[in-house]
């Protein structure tokens, strides 16, 4: 009623992206199709050729309550695809809690192919109901860089985790080889944010977020993301110990060996992490590196992810700078 967008039809917005390796050795678009409310755009004259760039958009800049989007992505042998968005994916309110707005993405990444999915965060409005399932099936030596993050809503309007429910699930599967092995689930990362309290003693969703305004997961897998994964694990191990004290005098600190560029960058990043109350952890889970982070607001999260990815450099090296446009 108060939505400026047309009432969505019951038909799902089906979309399909197929990327293949062209004879000249660069990746090219083989097929691109979409239906309302999904919209896919790929620049016809791309400035970079390291990967094909596709924008995941929606008519009206968001999903109206009850919208359903099913996207299938096929990255063929040796090809590379970068998926980005333009601005937050807004999730508008649902009329009733049983009207669920859904996005499903099924991705197939062939041998030696790679996908980089670094979108803007999902921004669920008050009273929205959203479920997102992303399934990635990786053949041998396929690579994946995935960022999935969600914000507290429109802070300017006082929204603070005020939606009904937000559910996000990411699955990474390794495809079985030569009909002998079965497909193997490597990681199933699932976040359930529900404002419905099962018991009166449970804190509200807002309280349970402990003043975090954005939470995110970065998932890395495959040979192209190997050095980035090790970088995150190394930086996590290098975090200053919580509760440790520096007993050196100011003179001794000043006299310490000059910092390398990496150390300078790290010191600055740690200062930002403290300032923005950014908490993160990284773990090696069955051959994937899973990074979890939470920050006060979107910009703090964005600058942190961007800083890490730019400093290490392999995303830009393998997919081109355009793949990073949402995290700069």
């Amino acid at each position: 009623m108060d939505s400026p967008f047309p009432r969505s039809s019951s038909a799902a917005g089906e979309g399909r992206i197929v990327i293949r390796l062209l004879p000249e050795g660069i990746s090219g678009l083989q097929a691109l199709s979409y239906q309302y409310p999904l919209k896919l755009v790929s620049p016809t004259r791309p400035s970079e050729t390291k990967s094909v760039l596709v924008f995941l958009l929606s008519f009206g800049g968001g999903l109206v309550g009850g919208d359903i989007v099913n996207l299938s992505v096929d990255v063929q042998t040796g090809a590379k695809l970068a998926l980005v968005t333009q601005g937050h994916t807004k999730i508008f309110k649902s009329a009733t809690p049983d009207v669920v707005t859904r996005q499903t993405m099924r991705v197939q990444i062939a041998a030696d192919a790679a996908l980089c999915l670094l979108p803007d965060p999902v921004q669920p409005f008050a009273s929205s109901v959203y479920e997102q399932v992303q399934i990635f099936r990786l053949a041998r030596n396929a690579s994946l860089c995935l960022l999935d993050w969600v914000t507290q809503g429109r802070t300017a309007r006082g929204e603070n985790w005020s939606f009904v429910r937000w559910l996000g699930r990411n699955e990474v599967w390794a495809l079985g080889d030569a009909s002998t092995e079965r497909d193997r689930l490597l990681v199933r990362d699932s976040v359930i944010l529900d404002n419905n309290r099962a018991h009166p003693q449970l804190p509200s969703l807002r309280e349970s977020m402990h003043s975090v305004g954005v939470i995110g997961t970065l998932l890395l897998r495959g040979p192209l993301m190997k050095s980035l994964g090790e970088f995150f694990l190394g930086e996590f191990a290098a975090l200053p110990r919580l509760g440790a004290r520096d007993f050196r005098s100011d003179d001794a600190k000043a006299a310490a060996a000059p910092l390398s560029p990496r150390e300078k960058w790290r010191a600055e990043r740690l200062r930002m992490e403290r300032e923005n109350k950014l908490l993160w952890s990284a773990a090696n889970v069955r051959g994937c590196v899973v990074v979890k982070f939470g920050a006060l607001d979107v910009e703090a999260g964005r600058s942190w992810v961007g800083s890490m990815l730019l400093e290490e450099g392999s995303v830009s090296r393998h997919f081109g700078d355009h793949s990073l446009m949402c995290v700069r």
């Binding site: 990362d189 359930i192 529900d194 349970s208 977020m209 919580l242 993160w280 952890s281």
Partner: peptide
Amino acid sequence: GQNVPVMDLWVGRHE
């Protein structure tokens, strides 16, 4: 799935 995302951060950052 995880319904208290900061719990993952606390547990992970026990390290």
